[in-house]
Simulated scan of single mutants.
Amino acid sequence: MASNLETLVTVFGGSGFLGRNVVRALCKRDYRVRVAVRRPELAGYLQPSGKVGQVHVVQANLRYPASVEAALRDSDVVINLVGILTESGKQSFDAVQAKGAETVAKAAAAVGARLVHVSAIGADAESPSRYAKAKAAGEAAVLAAVPSATIFRPSVMFGPEDQFTNRFAALARMSPVLPLIGGETKMQPVYVGDVATAIADAVDGKAKAGATYELGGPEVLTMREIIEAILEITARKPTLVPLPFGLARFQANFLQFAPGAFKLTPDQVTLLQRDNVVSDAAKAAGLTLEGLGITADSLEAIAPQYLWRFRAAGQFQRMSI
């Protein structure tokens, strides 16, 4: 049996939040990893994820098919993690998550590589959200080009470098008042390390070909419960002010141009109107983390390991029992 070192896995979007965890997981399993990113000079921090020479970073942009084809040369497995939360210039949802996904899938088909594609729970061609609509279009294009592709749809992901728990913790540190949008919307936060394990399992051949998996954590929580958990971990006590969707969308027309943690787009408000949880159909079919034999870590177990930095006295702050 050939060793994993003879298997070349090309990861598109390997320098992002999920990407760095996937690269680390693949390196632990001794795969050769080629990371395809728009700015390779900014991805040097990925090198220590593996042994000397195990990780190779190349340039590729999903909007340029020739660069994707070049990055895929001699690949055995292709993983597409590229996705954006907000649009900027030519990096639109459609260009990146629909047409970009199609470009990767067609190039993978051309070299006969297996394909793992990461989408999102909520991907829906009928969704009023342009993000969710583009994710669904990407899935359809992937399966049209590579019917044997494995698709993963994670719920909202958390972990040390996330733009979710860190964002609310940062806002709570800066403001005595925290607007609560979609307080009753249900989520199933999933630890990024568990999603990376699932993807590495798929590379190992443990996932079903042509199947769509939905990945959620062990708990279904409302948006209010998630934010309250973050506030408890960080020992912050801002006042939570529920914001109706109409007013939130109005504010988002201005906040979409705001920097960092204050940024909020109208499309994100639309996404918050719909629950983001693993479907009963996926559970029944075993197309979940549990179905892959992965025991999911909870927000409560993982988040304190990195959110302590938002406490007034950091890691040394005494917490009430």
Rank of each mutant, 00 (worst) to 15 (best):
S155R: 11
G89D: 01
P189E: 00
L231P: 00
E102S: 11
E102F: 01
A172L: 01
K90W: 13
S75K: 06
G53Q: 01
I151S: 06
E184G: 06
I181D: 05
V278G: 04
A36I: 04
V55Q: 01
E228Y: 10
L26R: 07
N80C: 12
A248M: 05
Q268S: 08
Q54N: 14
V37R: 13
G53A: 07
A140D: 05
K237L: 04
I84L: 10
S92H: 06
E69H: 08
T212D: 02
L307T: 07
T222F: 08
I79F: 03
R153V: 12
G159P: 09
L307Q: 11
S67L: 05
E300K: 15
V35R: 12
M157Y: 01
G44I: 02
K106Y: 05
S148R: 03
V156H: 13
I181M: 05
A71H: 11
E102C: 02
N166A: 13
R24L: 00
G293N: 00
P147I: 07
S15L: 15
V77F: 11
V77M: 08
V116C: 08
A261C: 02
N4E: 11
V111E: 00
A252T: 11
N80Y: 10
V68R: 04
G16E: 04
L178A: 11
G50H: 03
A281W: 12
G44W: 03
D94I: 09
L292V: 08
G19A: 08
D267W: 07
V52K: 15
Y306L: 05
G14H: 02
E232K: 15
Y213F: 06
G89N: 04
S155V: 07
T197R: 12
A313E: 12
E219W: 04
A285R: 14
Y191N: 02
A140R: 10
H56E: 15
A110I: 04
M319H: 09
P242H: 10
E225R: 03
G13S: 10
T212V: 14
L143E: 04
R309D: 06
D194W: 12
H117E: 02
A110H: 11
L81Y: 03
A149N: 00
A145R: 08
V269K: 13
R236M: 08
E87Q: 11
I302M: 13
E225I: 02
V142R: 01
R63P: 00
G159Y: 09
E139R: 00
V220C: 04
M1L: 15
P154Q: 09
L8C: 03
L180P: 03
V220W: 14
F250N: 10
T270Q: 07
R311T: 12
G286L: 13
P266G: 06
G89S: 08
F262D: 13
R39I: 03
I227T: 05
Y306C: 11
I227C: 00
R153L: 09
T7L: 05
V156L: 14
P304F: 10
A136Q: 08
E6V: 07
T185G: 06
R318M: 15
Q163R: 14
I181A: 12
D275A: 06
P242E: 08
I302F: 00
G159V: 02
G44L: 11
Q59V: 02
D267F: 10
R173C: 14
Y31K: 09
D94C: 06
T150Y: 12
A303N: 12
R173D: 11
G14I: 01
A2D: 14
G89L: 10
L264K: 04
G100N: 09
